[in-house]
């Protein structure tokens, strides 16, 4: 078992910064939970993953964020040993993915996995748990997944959202050190989604490593210590939600032009783009303080507003120009 310290043992400044908010427990020393190095994957002539490098330390909660077709599921399938990489290596806890899976260190919720019919929820979870060396108590897994009251119900008689929780319970049942969730909230309503994230965080606090994929930007920002944005099979950004927003042009500054000339605006400090909507100017800036001071110098402060760029904007900015390496 890994020793959890709650102290950052490494990583980039961005990652260390992200640590404060979510208090992940991190393993002291030892191999990384997940390591991709130079991984590519092609289907025939189509290359889906291009030279992916990614390391996840034990205890981290990482979101794999990308659009549909960005290579998220292919990445996850390679991570789980379900799909061999065309080149490069994938390591889990320092060894082959298959070895980590056989040792019961991995639990996963696959995107296209449906629970099997004609068994009750409890029978299914008890069975899965028994295949692992150090499983969770079945009742605990059911409770954590919010299935307590459905334990005796047949899996094929559950609603879509309930079935999704069964898949979560299947992933949890073995008490795995690494939990992999491929688009875990796709079929859940708002209430169930909230409950799901609560459970996931509780599981992360026990010192486990979690990797989840999503195309919900807010989910990645709210629930992960670190966001890895992939697009076109490459990592295009890697860091905390804050850092990613900043990289994509942190804030939006807007004000009324009131007839002032727009020519000097693109040259102001920090400004990366300028948009004019009627009489209003919208500046995207990496350094809103410097931009606002410069605007004040020009007297352009009528109805001035500074707003953080949404993660949505950041995401679009990052993935629109995926050829440009930002990470």
């Amino acid at each position: 078992m890994s020793i959890t310290t709650g102290i950052a043992t490494g990583g980039t400044p961005d990652r260390a910064e992200a640590m404060g908010a979510v208090t992940p427990a991190r393993a002291a020393g030892g191999a990384a939970a997940v390591g991709f190095s130079g991984v590519t994957r092609s289907y025939g002539a189509v290359r889906v993953v291009h030279g992916l490098d990614l390391e996840i330390a034990a205890g981290e909660t990482v979101a794999l964020l990308g659009r549909n077709g960005a290579g998220k599921s292919t990445t996850i399938n390679m991570l789980l040993g379900l799909l061999p990489p065309s080149s490069g290596t994938v390591r889990l806890f320092g060894g082959e993915p298959e070895a980590a899976v056989r040792a019961g260190k991995v639990g996963a919720m696959l995107q296209d996995g449906q629970p099997i019919p004609r068994v009750t929820v409890r029978e299914l979870i008890t069975f899965v748990a028994a295949t692992y060396p150090r499983p969770m108590d079945a009742d605990e897994a059911l409770e954590l997944a919010g299935l307590g009251e459905f334990a005796g119900r047949r899996v094929d008689r559950l609603s879509g959202g309930q079935a999704q929780r069964v898949r979560f319970a299947v992933a949890l049942a073995g008490n795995p050190e690494l939990l992999v969730l491929d688009e875990p909230t796709a079929a859940l309503d708002v209430e169930a989604r909230r409950a799901f994230w609560r459970s996931m965080r509780a599981y992360a606090r026990r010192g486990n490593t979690i990797l989840f994929s999503t195309h919900y930007l807010e989910e990645a920002d709210d629930h992960a210590d670190r966001i890895v944005v992939i697009d076109g099979g490459r990592v295009v950004a890697d860091g905390s939600g804050e850092a990613i927003k900043r990289r994509a042009g942190g804030s939006l500054v807007s004000f009324d032009l009131a007839g002032a000339p727009t020519e000097p605006l693109p040259g102001l400090p920090g400004v990366s783009s300028v948009e004019i909507r009627g009489d209003r100017a919208l500046l995207r800036t990496a350094d809103s303080d410097a931009t606002v001071l410069a605007l004040a110098g020009l007297g352009l402060v009528r109805r001035l507003e500074v707003a953080p760029a949404g993660l949505e904007d950041a995401f679009l900015a990052l993935t629109a120009s995926s050829t440009k390496e930002i990470a």
Binding site: V101, A108, G174
Partner: peptide, 14 residues
Amino acid sequence: QLGWLRQLRITPLS
């Protein structure tokens, strides 16, 4: 078809 065989592959059951 349900993906259950895949799910079994990521349990320790060989």
